[in-house]
């Protein structure tokens, strides 16, 4: 009796809207997590544009600031901030899963919640330092 295995294929473009009943929608979560990096890239482009404007002189920089402070500019930055936060938080959630076990003095593993606390702590500290710098340096 000859074997005639029937191949099971998935659609190269639509696989992530398939509906496997996992405990959470892993495929959709994955696509959301990865695709939000586009907004991080977008902000990097804005940032580089700003640096370029700064290098070109006060007039160009005033133009850049004007664009950023316009209604559309603010809306764009808010949207970018929202997606960047989503991207950050979802990666923070994955971090304990991607690490070698850290050990406490008594030999027990550092719990995942502690890893997350450190990440959010560092995130908050960096935000506070940035805001302080802005407050001190702004005329």
């Amino acid at each position: 009796m000859a074997r005639r295995p029937y191949p099971q294929e998935v659609d190269r473009f639509k696989w992530w809207i398939a509906d496997p009943h996992f405990n959470r929608p892993y495929y959709l979560d994955y696509i959301a997590r990865e695709s939000t990096c586009i907004f991080i890239a977008l902000y990097t482009i804005l940032f580089v544009w700003g640096l370029g404007a700064l290098a070109s002189g006060p007039e160009a920089f005033a133009g850049f600031m004007g664009a950023m402070q316009s209604g559309w500019g603010l809306a764009l930055q808010l949207v970018i901030l929202a997606f960047a936060l989503y991207h950050t938080v979802t990666w923070f959630m994955l971090a304990p899963q991607g690490m070698k076990p850290l050990r406490m003095k008594n030999g027990k593993r550092v719990p995942a919640t502690r890893v997350m606390q450190v990440l959010y702590g560092a995130f908050a500290a960096a935000t506070v330092v940035t805001l302080l710098l802005v407050w001190v340096l702004l005329p």
């Binding site: 996992f22 892993y26 994955y30 994955l94 899963q97």
Partner: peptide, 17 residues
């Protein structure tokens, strides 16, 4: 690419991801 579904379905909590 760290989708993570492997660890979700694993009946022995092997944590492949």
């Amino acid at each position: 690419s760290f989708v993570g579904a492997c660890s979700d379905v694993c009946p022995k909590h092997v944590e492949p991801a």
